[in-house]
């Protein structure tokens, strides 16, 4: 039996409720404290991760820049779909993101979800970032399936109020302010830690 189950446990598809099995294909977040609590030690590949933040400018991009910088080095584009503001090149370069692999897609609210699904499904992108304002559970499920089909890593940045909504994302992390902390709300393949993670250390 265990020969059949072993691959499922290793890839995190099956979890037996005890301990965490390190997954081999996770992407380091760049924040050691966060890596330690996430099963697999980082953002899951080929899945959707959700970041819930209370307001603009609380570190929602700081959390992602290390992983984007790393993914950008793969050569495939990192796509931002309908970002709320313009990425300031000087700051992104300072965070060692290669601007040549950064692509921005301008789209309306309705078209943006379509574009996200296309990008996730196509397997042409290293990462896809999106800011869905109104997404029902069915849409989220669709996007998660698209990320799995296209083997693409997706990040969804949503307001904190969405935390109560059921989500298919593999990892959900809420940013809390004053003092700045990260709360892991959900992580596939492990129990979410009770303690919050301090979010002050600047990524190396």
């Amino acid at each position: 039996m265990s020969a059949i189950l072993q691959p499922l446990i290793e890839t995190g598809r099956l979890w037996r409720g005890q301990g965490t099995v390190p997954r081999r294909d996770a992407l380091p977040t760049g924040f050691d404290a966060l890596d330690r609590v996430l099963p697999g030690g980082g953002w899951p590949r080929a899945a959707l991760s959700e970041i819930l933040f209370p307001a603009d400018g609380v570190g929602e991009l700081r959390l992602l820049l290390p992983v984007l910088a790393m993914l950008g080095r793969e050569g495939r584009p990192v796509v931002l779909i309908a970002p709320p503001y313009l990425p300031f090149p000087a700051a992104w370069i300072a965070a060692s993101v290669d601007l040549r692999c950064l692509q921005i897609v301008q789209a309306s609210e309705a078209d943006a979800l379509w574009a996200v699904e296309q990008c996730l499904r196509s397997a042409a992108c290293a990462a896809v970032l999106c800011w869905p304002r109104q997404a029902d559970t069915a849409t989220l499920r669709r996007l998660q399936l698209a990320a799995e089909t296209g083997q693409t890593t997706g990040f969804m940045l949503r307001p904190s109020q969405a935390a109560t909504q059921a989500s298919m994302a593999a990892v959900r992390i809420g940013i809390e302010t004053g003092p700045s902390r990260l709360r892991v709300l959900k992580c596939r393949g492990g129990n979410p830690p009770v303690q919050t993670v301090p979010f002050t250390a600047i990524a190396a």
Partner: peptide
């Protein structure tokens, strides 16, 4: 013009 890159100036 919906898809574009960005460069530092």
């Amino acid at each position: 013009h919906a898809v574009h890159g960005l460069a530092l100036h």
